[in-house]
Amino acid sequence: MATLIEVQNLKKDYPMGAAGVFNALKGVDIKVEKGEFVAIMGASGSGKSTLLHLLGCLDTPTSGSYLLEGTPVHTLSQDELAELRNSKIGFIFQSFYLLPRANVLENVELPLIYDKIPPSERKKRAMEVISFLQLETHAKHLPNQLSGGQRQQIAIARALVNNPSLIMADEPTGNLDSVTSQRIMELLKKLNDMGNTLILVTHEADIAVYAKRLVRIKDGIIISDEPIKKD
């Protein structure tokens, strides 16, 4: 299997004013192959969000190296990171993060706009993903007309629309009831079965079990990294 992510001795410090610096990540090594479904677990303050931001190309490390499909991410500028996020990464967030004034179709189209895809092509591709998730009837609805589960599905559609190499899910079920959470996790599992690489960040064990591999993080270092055995 081809390597998607290769991270070596990744460190991230945050300045804390007079108190010096806060070492959020103290040297993380991790390797993710294409097609994997990795859950990153940890308590709040463990550094899991920092790791997610770095892996998601939203931020650059203080030191260490990060290769995404061979691209050295740690050397890139803000705009180059934006381009990388646009072409290789799809995000799913806890609070969905949909644009409130844009309808479902426009929300799903959003990443394609920044990829300079012509409008007709954009609409076609967005509709394809929307119908894959069976949300066609809601294409013209605004996010606030939909349920939480539906909103998260829209966010998933947006994450899929640019055919990303990596899907990053940050507590995707944190704002959902247990039944809906289950449905969303089944969907993510299905996406993984179709060949998508997923990284899931959560603090809930019953959500993490949907993944195939579990990475535990505490105080800025990885304390365990093992496959999840299925019953």
Partner: peptide, 16 residues
């Protein structure tokens, strides 16, 4: 600000 964050996350460059 949130909207700007969302747009940046999905690939908007600074100039966009």
């Amino acid at each position: 600000t949130r909207e700007i964050g969302i747009r940046m996350a999905v690939g908007a460059k600074r100039r966009h």
